[in-house]
Computed example of a mutant assay.
Amino acid sequence: MKKNMKESEELRKQLDLERLQSDTRKLNISKSIAEFEVLEGELEKHRKCWHQEVDDIFDKHKSLITSMRENAIKSLTEQNHAPKHVIERKLQIIKENKDIIRSKSVSKVVNYKTEFQEYKASPKEIDAIVTVPSLKVKTDRGKELDMEYGEGELIYTDTDSVIIVRSGMTENLIKTPEGWEPWGLCCTNSGDILVNMVTNAVIHDHKIVRYAGQKAVQDIQKDSDGNPFFQSGNFIICLAENRNGDICASDGNAKKVVVMDKEGAVRFRYTGYPAKRKKYFCPEHIATDSKSQIIETDHNNDCLHILDQNGEFLQCVDDCGLDTPGGLSIDNKGRCWVGLHSGKLKVISLNM
């Protein structure tokens, strides 16, 4: 009997242990299911994110095609305008000659002033063919998507000119005045070009010239009292236009950011205060975002300074490993692309 009781007790212990293990396994199963559901949720979140990325890419290319189409049609329309005017005038002359001949009026014949010399030359041949770029897409399954077509316009400064590259062809867009060299530029929302110019001297004077096409329409150098806006020196004046039309200039020679309205009147200057950095403010490149915020690199303090459009300091970004930041650009998603002097590139999302 004792043996039977002992055996039963041992079996009850084993059953209790098995129930405990079973409960543990069920708990682990539930936990695993929950974790896999979280994983699937993360996957779906990334799926939506990547779908949005693809949509954004195609939207961007669609916008580019629309822009190319509008420019092409505009060019063809402008080319067609002059010949149409000439044709209409020639038809008018033929009609006037017929009327004179039918009238048999001596006075009309004597007083007739011919325009034949102006129109006798053969019509000038006009290249009215627009080559629509072909679309090349690589979509090998499991590999990256590659899509390209056409060639955008590249604008850059040379020794004494502003150069534009259109469809692979290089041409001089702007010839700078004698004694001045172009050191930098930015394109405005209206299509104008702002050019930072410097004098041919050991210590350079600076000014900003606005060009509409090839014509200089604004010269920003001195205020109404004759005082220069920018300090002489060998640092380039980096430029950006804000959404409200303000001209934002980074003056590394004066260690200041100068912001002017589109008429060239100074709205404010920023000297690095109240950021309270360890070293003096040393601005280099400048950019603006969709919120009209002004972002400035400070390579002396390894950070970005962010201001609102009225010059109020918002924050410094100094926790992203920005070792001597230099170049700066903002993409259409508001991300900062920061070029470091080491040659590295940092992409930063500003959550403000």
Rank of each mutant, 00 (worst) to 15 (best):
E151S: 15
G272V: 01
S190E: 14
D225T: 11
S67L: 12
L340A: 07
N234W: 01
K104L: 09
Y270D: 03
Y119P: 10
F229A: 09
L185F: 04
M1V: 06
C187N: 11
I174E: 05
V257Y: 09
V257E: 11
D146C: 02
V202A: 14
P123Y: 11
E284L: 10
E171F: 09
V338W: 02
F268D: 03
D331K: 01
A212F: 01
E9V: 09
T66H: 11
G339Y: 01
M147Y: 11
H341W: 10
L173Q: 04
N97Y: 11
I100D: 07
E88K: 12
I203E: 11
D127G: 13
L239K: 06
G213N: 02
L345N: 08
I93T: 15
S105A: 00
L350K: 09
L91A: 14
M197N: 14
G311P: 03
V110K: 15
R141V: 15
G152Q: 07
G179D: 10
S167D: 14
M5L: 08
T114V: 00
P83K: 01
T131C: 07
H204Q: 14
K3G: 05
H341I: 14
K2V: 04
E125I: 12
Q221K: 15
Q214I: 03
S63R: 08
Y149P: 04
G311D: 04
V347F: 06
N4F: 01
R269Q: 03
D160L: 05
C49W: 14
S107C: 10
E312M: 08
I330P: 03
P325A: 00
E35L: 13
L345K: 06
I330A: 05
L11P: 04
V130F: 06
P123S: 13
Y112F: 14
N80Y: 06
S8G: 06
L350R: 12
D323F: 07
D323G: 02
A82G: 12
F281R: 06
G311H: 02
C320V: 05
R269W: 00
S290Y: 14
K48C: 07
T159G: 13
D55R: 10
V86K: 15
D298M: 00
S67G: 12
D308Y: 05
L304E: 00
C238R: 13
S30A: 10
A121V: 12
G311L: 03
V54Y: 06
R243L: 14
K113E: 10
G339C: 04
V217E: 00
G264W: 00
K104G: 01
P83A: 04
V130N: 05
D146E: 06
M260V: 10
A249N: 02
D160T: 15
K6S: 13
K136A: 15
F230R: 01
S342W: 03
Q315A: 08
N71Y: 13
L345A: 09
I73C: 09
D158G: 15
K207G: 07
A254F: 01
Y270M: 01
W337V: 08
F281V: 08
Q79F: 09
S250G: 07
E125T: 13
A254K: 03
L173E: 05
N351Y: 03
L194N: 04
S167Y: 12
E78R: 10
A275R: 03
Y149G: 09
I94A: 15
E284M: 09
I306G: 04
L194K: 02
